[in-house]
Computed example of a mutant assay.
Amino acid sequence: MNQKEFSNEGRQALTIAEGFMPRLYDDGGNGKGHCTIGYGHLVHYDPCNSQKFHSEQQFINGISVEKGISLLKKDYAFAEVAVNDLVKVSLNQNQFDALVIFIFNVGRGAFYKSTLLKKLNAGSYESVPSELRRWNRSGGKIMNGLISRREKEVVLFNKKVNK
Rank of each mutant, 00 (worst) to 15 (best):
A82G: 03
I37D: 01
L117D: 06
T115F: 15
P47H: 00
F104C: 04
R149T: 05
P22S: 11
G62L: 12
D26T: 12
N61R: 04
L42Q: 07
G40V: 04
A79N: 02
I16G: 10
F96R: 04
S130F: 10
L99R: 06
Y45T: 14
H54P: 02
N94I: 01
Y39H: 01
E5R: 15
E56P: 12
F96V: 05
V154I: 13
R108F: 00
T115I: 11
K4M: 02
S70W: 15
A79M: 04
D85K: 13
F53K: 07
R149V: 08
W135L: 08
K160V: 12
S64D: 11
E151N: 12
N158L: 04
L24K: 04
I60C: 00
G29V: 09
Q95H: 10
I63T: 14
P129D: 01
K160Q: 08
P22C: 05
Q57Y: 07
F78C: 05
V81I: 03
E66A: 06
L132E: 10
R134Y: 14
S50F: 04
E80Q: 08
N84L: 05
K73F: 01
N84W: 13
G33P: 02
Y76H: 12
A79I: 01
L117H: 10
E151R: 02
R133F: 03
S64W: 10
F157I: 05
I16N: 07
D97Q: 06
T15N: 05
G28F: 14
N162M: 05
Q3P: 12
S130Q: 14
R134N: 15
D97H: 08
L42C: 12
R11L: 11
L120G: 09
G40S: 06
L132S: 13
V106R: 01
H54F: 11
V128Q: 00
P47E: 02
R150C: 13
A98K: 07
H54S: 15
L117Y: 06
Y39C: 04
K52C: 07
V43A: 06
V128P: 02
F104A: 06
L120D: 04
R23Q: 06
E66N: 12
R150H: 04
D85S: 13
V155A: 09
V83K: 04
V43E: 09
L117K: 10
Y45C: 13
